[in-house]
Nucleic acid binder design. Structure first.
Length: 287
RNA sequence: GGCCCGAUAGCUCAGCAGGUAGAGCGGAGGACUGAAAAUCCUUAUGUCCCCGGUUCGAUCCCGGGUUGGGCCA
């Protein structure tokens, strides 16, 4: 059985994962884009180093350096290998990056390709790129819209290196789940409770030395990825500690909302619970 | 006690020769196939402090309150 635990940040997914793992003697595979990096700890709310050192059934944590950025393509490859390797055992998937989970379990296809250069099409305005993509792949252009620079570039890049448009590549694919015996368990606390939980978790991160960890991470050269991580990037804005803390809380709240939207719409067969115990009982009942 | 300034969206504030109001922030909803903790889209709300008066019509003008701040005693 593959248990997937989905829910926003700070909803105690890890705790549920651990309980299920103990109950069914399962391995745990992380699907969180930032918990894979060994240099990031406090800000990512990952299980402690001690805990991970003492549990050899936890995978996809701390195995990558921030200097060597990871992405969905690599994640899909690595995590699918694990699913194959442990296919006769119980597995718990837990994390917060919806795209990673979706790419792992569903028919998402990626091909080997050269990394898109940092300066790819950098001299074009988004309006110009939009006009360009309208000619190459109208459907995708309309879907992306004229303002999403990142996606416009990516779509143009795909058509350039694969000789097929993004729409052509994706149209052949159905939105189908590739694995059997998958049980989706959603945790979805009331909004107010979730936000309180986020706020107090950020306070605790600060008490535990988030500032120091962030500063040391940001001092490493070429850590672009970290510049995008909530709980780290905010320290480079020149704000005082209190402002930084409040901004991290806000960004985390906004992030949690985006996660809720993604999980709600991208995963159809999720049974949701406000309460952790009920979620656990449900998982047991489905076994 | 006297004088002055303010009171408008959840917050900070703008506005109006009198024709029932708008920005930013926050909030809410949404998209999502190689940065996804990223990137992008959409959107709501108001006894314009209260009570009277003038007026066809008052958030705006007048009078009286309430309340916050400042100055003087």
């Amino acid at each position: 059985m593959i248990f997937c635990i989905v829910g926003p940040t700070a909803s105690h997914k890890s705790e549920l994962a651990e309980r299920i793992a103990i109950e069914f003697n399962a391995i745990v595979i992380n699907f969180d884009a930032f918990q894979v990096y060994k240099e990031m700890n406090l800000g990512t709310a990952k299980p402690s180093e001690d805990f991970l050192n003492n549990h050899d059934n936890y995978f996809m944590y701390n195995f990558r350096s921030i200097k060597d950025p990871y992405n969905v393509f690599l994640y899909q490859k690595d995590a699918r290998k694990l699913l194959e390797q442990y296919k006769n055992e119980n597995i718990v998937l837990v994390g917060g990056t919806g795209l990673y989970l979706k790419a792992l379990l569903y028919d998402y296809r990626f091909e080997e390709e050269e990394k898109m250069p940092e300066d790819y099409l950098e001299n074009y305005t988004s309006e110009e790129l939009y006009q360009l993509l309208l000619k190459i792949d109208k459907d995708d252009a309309l879907k992306i819209g004229p303002n999403n620079l990142k996606r416009l570039k990516r779509s143009i890049y795909i058509s350039e290196i694969h000789n097929k448009t993004k729409t052509e590549i994706n149209n052949n694919l159905k939105d189908s789940l590739l694995y059997e015996n998958v049980c989706f368990v959603g945790i979805c606390p009331p909004r107010e409770e979730l936000y309180e939980s986020i706020n107090s978790r950020v306070d605790i991160m600060f008490e535990n030395g988030l500032k120091e960890e962030a500063k040391s991470l940001l001092s490493i050269n070429g850590v672009n990825q970290a510049l995008h991580a909530i709980g780290y990037k905010e320290f480079s804005f020149g704000l005082d500690d209190e402002e930084t803390k409040e901004l991290i809380k806000k960004n985390t709240r906004n992030y949690a909302k985006r996660q809720l939207t993604f999980f709600r719409h991208q995963f159809k067969d999720v049974t949701r619970f406000e309460d952790l115990d009920e979620a656990f009982l449900y998982a047991k009942s489905r076994y």
